[in-house]
């Protein structure tokens, strides 16, 4: 297990390094950063001054390691637009996004795993049909439309929930439903497929031949094996929620990191975009690492060779 953890950790580190290099390179791929900073109408001398001031004239690798060193100590540069530290900016917005992401993935799992299990126990039954209907709906409904419908019914008509903002937990209810419901179908279908497959295996027959009670067969022997691919999927979905909840954050005016990313892209605020990409990628890497560890704990074939 220790060897496996170290191996995964090393791999995660390498991926992080690669991502950081790409994220750093973005600044140069898009345009000359000195021109971008000085503005389109600036004089050549000013551009040159900025280039020297910020060190854009040095070799790119030197700049990269310099940047990496600063990034590692939490300095991601200054936002062109806000004129403040990017790390502070992101740090300010992250709690909202994290709260939303955690709520949404929890909602998605709580909704879809039991439904998937129930659907797999009785394939083609009423509950299976309901689960299929719900998942097709979740897959097909555009989240902006679903969000608007929720606002119309829950906020405008019934006046149960606030329309937008992020002041109280009530503000998070609708965004959580929209974001979580978007992620739920895939988790539900994967749970159902996994359970169906596992329930037809020989070891489940053995468990029944041992006289074990149905709940033990179902939850101890079957679910543990069926849930392994679901863990990996949920990790990816969670990463997606943290980085890609732009639509939901915009509609409900939750000023999270997704909203910041959208703002910064439209404003050409490259250091912020760069910082966000780095942070989102690191999230993915950390989540994948955690998912790998959970799976290794669940499946001894991964952990013990």
């Amino acid at each position: 297990m220790l060897y496996y953890t170290l191996k995964r950790l090393g791999l995660a580190g390498l991926v992080a390094l690669t991502v950081s290099f790409i994220s750093f390179g973005l600044l140069y791929l898009s345009s000359d950063p000195a021109i971008a900073m000085a503005g389109e109408t600036a004089a050549d001398a000013d551009i040159e001054a900025i280039r020297q001031l910020y060190g854009f004239d040095r070799p790119i690798l030197v700049q990269y390691f310099d940047w990496l060193q600063r990034a590692a100590s939490g300095d991601l540069g200054k936002s062109y637009y806000f004129r403040t530290d990017v790390s502070a900016l992101i740090g300010e917005r992250l709690p909202t996004t994290m709260t939303l992401g955690l709520c949404a993935i929890t909602f998605a799992i709580v909704l879809s795993v039991p439904l998937g299990v129930a659907a797999a126990i009785r394939p083609n039954s009423f509950i299976d049909r309901v689960a299929l209907f719900l998942s097709v709906m979740g897959q097909a409904l555009p989240s902006f439309w679903f969000a608007l419908m929720l606002i119309v019914f829950l906020s405008v008509s019934l006046r149960l929930l606030p329309v937008s903002g992020s002041d109280t937990w009530l503000h998070f209810v609708m965004p959580t439903i929209v974001l979580g419901y978007y992620a739920a179908p895939a988790i539900m279908r994967l749970t159902r497929t996994g359970m169906l497959e596992v329930l037809s295996t020989d070891y489940i027959r053995t468990a029944r031949a041992k006289g074990l009670r149905p709940p033990v067969v179902l939850f101890k022997h079957a679910l543990r094996n069926a849930i392994i691919p679901v863990v990996s999927l949920a990790a990816v979905q969670f990463g997606f929620m943290l980085g890609g909840s732009i639509v939901v954050e915009t509609i409900f005016a939750l000023h999270g990191a997704g909203f910041l990313a959208w703002e910064s892209i439209t404003r050409n605020d490259l250091p912020t975009v760069q910082g966000l990409i780095l942070v989102f990628s690191l999230f993915y890497i950390v989540l994948t690492f955690i998912a790998d560890l959970i799976n290794a704990w669940l499946d001894p074939r991964i952990r013990i060779k």
Binding site: T201, A209, G211, L212, R224, N225, L298, P300
Partner: peptide, 25 residues
């Protein structure tokens, strides 16, 4: 029947490779 299975009568299957649960000792 579940009280009888594994208790009064037991069964051994054809495929030893897949008849035991891979996730438990």
């Amino acid at each position: 029947m579940s009280d009888v299975r594994g208790n009064k009568m037991g069964m051994i299957f054809q495929e030893p490779m897949s008849s035991l649960n891979p996730s438990f000792t």
